[in-house]
Design a protein around this nucleic acid. Sequence first.
DNA 1: CCGCTTATTTTCAGCCTGAGTACAAGCGGA
DNA 2: TCCGCTTGTACTCAGGCTGAAAATAAGCGG
Lengths: 319, 319
Amino acid sequence: MGEQPKGIRKGRAERKASDVKADLTAVVVAVNNRDPCVLTIGQEDALPSGPFELAHRSLQSGLRVWVEQQTGQPLGYVEQLYTFADRDRIGTERVISITYLALTREEVATSSSRRRWGSWYDYFPWEDHRSGTPPVIGDVLRPRLIEWADGAADSARRLERRRRAAVAFGFDDRAWNEELALQRYELLFEARIVEEATRDGHSTALASVPGRPMVADHRRILATGIARLRSKIKYRPVVFELIPPVFTLLQLQRTVEALAGRLINKPNFRRLIEQQELVEETGETSVDTGGRPAKLYRFRHAVLDETPMAGTKLPLARA
Amino acid sequence: MGEQPKGIRKGRAERKASDVKADLTAVVVAVNNRDPCVLTIGQEDALPSGPFELAHRSLQSGLRVWVEQQTGQPLGYVEQLYTFADRDRIGTERVISITYLALTREEVATSSSRRRWGSWYDYFPWEDHRSGTPPVIGDVLRPRLIEWADGAADSARRLERRRRAAVAFGFDDRAWNEELALQRYELLFEARIVEEATRDGHSTALASVPGRPMVADHRRILATGIARLRSKIKYRPVVFELIPPVFTLLQLQRTVEALAGRLINKPNFRRLIEQQELVEETGETSVDTGGRPAKLYRFRHAVLDETPMAGTKLPLARA
DNA sequence: CCGCTTATTTTCAGCCTGAGTACAAGCGGA
DNA sequence: TCCGCTTGTACTCAGGCTGAAAATAAGCGG
């Protein structure tokens, strides 16, 4: 790896000017009791994070170190999300945030007390459609988005804004698309409907902005993680990272529903899972949960070998 | 954005230790005459790249500056690929590579002469399956991969290696999956079948390693870009960034085939394109290309608004 | 007009999907 | 004990999408 392309690196003295800090930030997700949760630390809501240092073997291992140190939570599945840089432009310092999505089972806290599990839907109340469209959309977001659209310079731009809002939130008979979580947040940010957008001191803060805000741009990072995970469960069997090794099919379904924020047709879900041979019966049945005892299953790890593209594809029920 | 989570940032003096250099690297893709090409610079094959600097407004704009400066090529569509860091561990310096995929139409070079368009398949000869499985797979890769598998410590590991090779390259009646370009390269690297893997001075270089190597880890970055693009054309209409504004359906199909490295059933491709209303007729027909004149089409930019998840889904012909 | 090339339309069977219905098995109270 | 409730499991069916192939159309050159 010694060679370097000619003419694309500057000399040492000049390079000094382009040094940056690299932050590693994690969206650690678990599902507990039908609610998808994210791990935060500190008084305010902050995602676990820390600087990338020389001592770290790699970006991922640096991330694991920080998260474990700050929260005591060991990480299982980890994947890179996105690298952000257009923030924190204070003086001559530049901070790059390399963000990760981590899936884990919510274990009881051992010692670290600064950690806290918060439901996704506290931060994004408009994202949970399991009991139908949440009222906040019609009561707050829709009117404010229309107001924002009407504030555009000319009529072409007004239409454009209305269309973007309609696509993102499923207005005007459009279908709700749970994977657009990030676009929705960015739209609300642009329209200054979320609190973070009014932190620059220039804008007037709107009363009762929906959803619990987070430190810096962490809510945006969380939205990125949610969008990625909602997309990923459809083509890779990652849900199993979030549930116990042995589970019932309904448990599995509820977990997927929690992540997707919408309900799934039960028979179709079972059919899909079984025909993909994602799971195998353990032979036992669950302790009662009110009705007929359910068969217990475990994940067939072999599927990871068989076809690298097998996934869950989600037979999502239509609104 | 002023607030910061407590306890996750170190003081200024300490932070100095974790400064890094951030490099921006681009995989610039164009398709010319049925071959997908990547833009390189310099004597050896290097992707355009340069350090992220204070003057840059954002990562993306920094990237655009470097590419245009080094190659004279203006960029259209740009998306982030991945951030790498586990390389270049020389001394106390740490370099992070933030890599991007850019799509463009291959214009004639204006002035910058250092630039060069090279076919993907010069770097990855095993990736082009448009004329059936390329001979290099059976003649070179398969035997060497088997040799590598047999070199594993115990029989479990031998099986594991064979299975991984079979999945990646479609051995033993498995289907070829064009999206696994990155896994394939990484497998060949691990098995030391590509030249880059033997650059550390410790290993013996194998004779006649397949595919043209690139500087540093640039071939890995290119493989990442190829894999991403092959996946993306199936669910987002990005192909249109690579072809002229007006085109025939066969031209469109050949472009997709060039990227995917495999052939597509013609009637099914047309049906898919039309039923998704991705294009509209211009009313004109193409100048002759030997047979019946073909209708000319243009991309319906409106689809970008209608459904953000519309894409091409590729009816790929089976081997 | 024939043979060649490429473009475009149709057909058809199989699979997957969404949606709904029916049946099974446990529990607890009337 | 029977009934109603809850949850689990099996089956059906129509529509849409897909892969594959055949048929038809339109230009060119001899």
